[in-house]
Simulated assay, not measured.
Amino acid sequence: MRKVSGIFLVGLCLGAIGAVVVTASHGDAAATQPIAVAETATTPSATSAPAPEPGPPATSATPTSSAKAEPVEVDAGKLDKIMRDGTASAVVFDRDSGKTTVSVRADRAYTSASIVKLLIALSVFEQGGGPVADVQRMLSRSDDDLASRSWSAYGGPAIVTRWVKKLGLTGTRPPEDAGRWGDTRITAADVVKIYRYLLERRSTPIMNALRGATERGSDGFRQYFGIPDAAKGQEWLVKQGWSCCRPTRMLHTSGVVGNTIVVVLSEHPAKVDYATGSRRVTELVGTLLGEGEGEDVGEGGR
């Protein structure tokens, strides 16, 4: 009996040691395995139009910043030097500090072009109507036909006046011609307020649409000027605007880079073509983001 007990005890000890070894081996193996992360794709509305070009990868509804750049000192003279012709306004708002770090001609009014689509989208979603995919396509591809339908369906100029009151917009006005939504008047300061509202409310369908902005708009215009071209390698979401010529050319870039709201509104003489104006707006944003002291950052993709 004693011999049997001794053998039995030795067996138990060896078994326990083996179990510990095996367990440790599994633990190490598990620690070295990569963790699979699912990618979230934003799907614009399904229509007969060509499929949207791929936009930046979708992440959470609120952008985050991995590295904070030092505040950049920008004044009207620096903007004017880059613009050469016309006028530009710029506002940069740091969400981490809750402070405006750049404010140049923040209250100067411009024709909104497609920037007003932000207010149209807000009206559609907050009134609980309209296909989500159509509204996202209106934003990501800047589709004018879809904007016109929603403008008519949700109140036309009343869309603007409702949001002016709700958000405390001080320089935004509806268009004089009720049918021309692109003639809404806006300011850079007010556009920042719109983005702050979107981010605070975590309007995921809208933010995903802006994050998934395609390189070409529905009219074929290249809408990666400004923020997308200047913020290479960074997370961004944007709503752009362009129009011509009543009598000037408008080129606006607005959105979020990391955790910073950036808005540049610009008005150019009609003699300045879209390609030249786009490069200048990109250069302006590059300066605001500290990508160089007025150097032309070009039109490279993200």
Rank of each mutant, 00 (worst) to 15 (best):
V264K: 10
Y274D: 14
V135R: 02
T101D: 09
G155K: 07
S218K: 07
A46L: 14
P50K: 03
T172F: 07
I194F: 01
S48H: 10
T260A: 08
Y110Q: 07
T276I: 04
N259F: 04
P44A: 11
S218I: 01
P57Y: 01
E73S: 15
P205R: 02
Y110R: 05
G168F: 07
A106H: 12
E176K: 09
K166D: 14
D85V: 01
K78S: 09
I261E: 02
L14Q: 04
G233S: 12
G212D: 15
A16V: 09
S278V: 14
G55F: 10
T204M: 04
G217V: 02
S140F: 03
A29I: 13
G182D: 10
C13A: 15
K117T: 06
P63T: 09
A113K: 00
G168D: 02
F93N: 06
A24M: 11
A147T: 04
T47H: 03
V256M: 08
D80L: 02
P247M: 00
A178C: 08
A275P: 03
S103K: 12
P157C: 04
Y274W: 13
R95L: 06
A109K: 14
M207D: 03
G55R: 11
G11S: 15
S103V: 08
A49G: 00
S266L: 03
V192K: 03
Y154T: 01
R196K: 11
L139H: 00
R2L: 15
G77P: 04
G11I: 15
V22A: 13
P71A: 10
A231H: 04
S150Y: 15
I35W: 04
P63H: 00
E291H: 14
V104A: 02
G217L: 04
P131I: 08
M138K: 01
G179K: 12
P54F: 04
A270L: 10
P228L: 11
A51S: 13
